[in-house]
Amino acid sequence: MELSEFTAQFRTDLEAAAALGGEKTQAVAKALGGAAETSARLMLLSALSKFAEEVSAALPDRTVTVRLDGTDAVVDVRATPAEPGDERAEEHQQTFEELTGDISRVTLRLVEQMKARAEEAAAESGQSLNSWLSQAVQGALKDQWKRNSQWHRY
């Protein structure tokens, strides 16, 4: 997120407020706007970091961080590994596992290039195409289930 648009708006607002005064007030406001830009950028980053902490606290399976990269604020969202004894993680795992069970047969039609790439990926991971596809589907379903149950929890 580019912070310059926000700091530029701060300067514009400061100069607009100073327009009510004389030329000297306007000149001082312009100088203060330039000097305060770094401080405003740091305050924005601080507010975003605090917000990221609050989001992380509300999402126990995610960690959100914000860092400054030049003039950009970069948001990083990562999955938090479940700790042993975490009841919610264990509860989620047991519930998802209850959804799996008997094996069913399906026919999957893929474009030839996609099938070839999937076979390569399966071979690279030392699995059959069937096992690789099964794990991919299971992972996608698990992620979707997590997202859906996470939003229903709050």
Rank of each mutant, 00 (worst) to 15 (best):
H152L: 15
A136F: 03
A8Q: 13
A121T: 09
V111L: 07
A18C: 10
V137Q: 01
A40N: 00
A52F: 11
T80Y: 00
L133H: 02
F6S: 06
Q138C: 04
F6Y: 15
L48N: 00
E87G: 09
S134D: 06
T100K: 10
A58W: 02
L68I: 03
E90M: 12
S149M: 07
G34A: 05
E112L: 11
E5S: 07
G33H: 12
D13C: 07
E5Q: 12
E83R: 09
E97V: 09
G33T: 06
A57H: 05
A118F: 13
D72A: 13
W132K: 00
Q135S: 10
F51D: 10
A79T: 10
W151G: 00
A121Y: 01
E83W: 00
A52L: 07
L108W: 04
T100W: 09
Q113P: 03
Q113N: 04
Y154I: 14
E120N: 07
E54T: 06
A79M: 05
M114E: 11
H152Y: 04
W145M: 07
L48A: 12
F96K: 02
A73R: 02
D72N: 15
F6D: 10
K30H: 12
E119G: 04
T80S: 06
Q144E: 15
A8V: 09
L129P: 06
E23H: 04
P81E: 11
L141V: 15
Q93N: 09
L99C: 01
T25L: 12
L3S: 04
E23P: 14
E23F: 05
R62P: 00
H152V: 11
E54W: 04
D143Y: 02
L32I: 05
Q94V: 12
A17G: 04
A57G: 04
R105F: 02
K30M: 00
A140L: 13
S39V: 11
R153G: 05
A118R: 00
M43V: 14
G34V: 07
A89F: 13
R11Y: 02
V64Y: 00
D86V: 06
E2S: 13
Q135V: 08
D86H: 04
A140V: 07
P81D: 09
S46W: 03
A18E: 09
D143W: 01
L20H: 07
K24C: 03
K146F: 05
A140Y: 05
E53G: 14
A58G: 14
E37S: 15
L59C: 11
F10W: 11
A58K: 15
F10L: 05
A29N: 11
A89L: 11
R41A: 15
E98K: 08
K146L: 14
A18S: 11
E90L: 10
L14S: 06
S125L: 06
A17L: 13
A47D: 09
K146N: 12
L20Y: 10
Q113V: 10
A16K: 11
S49R: 14
A35C: 02
K24L: 11
Q113E: 12
D102E: 15
S134Q: 13
A140R: 14
S56C: 07
S39R: 14
G126F: 01
D143Q: 11
V64P: 00
M43N: 06
A57R: 13
T63P: 01
L44K: 02
M114R: 11
H152D: 08
V106K: 09
V77C: 12
H152Q: 14
V77D: 04
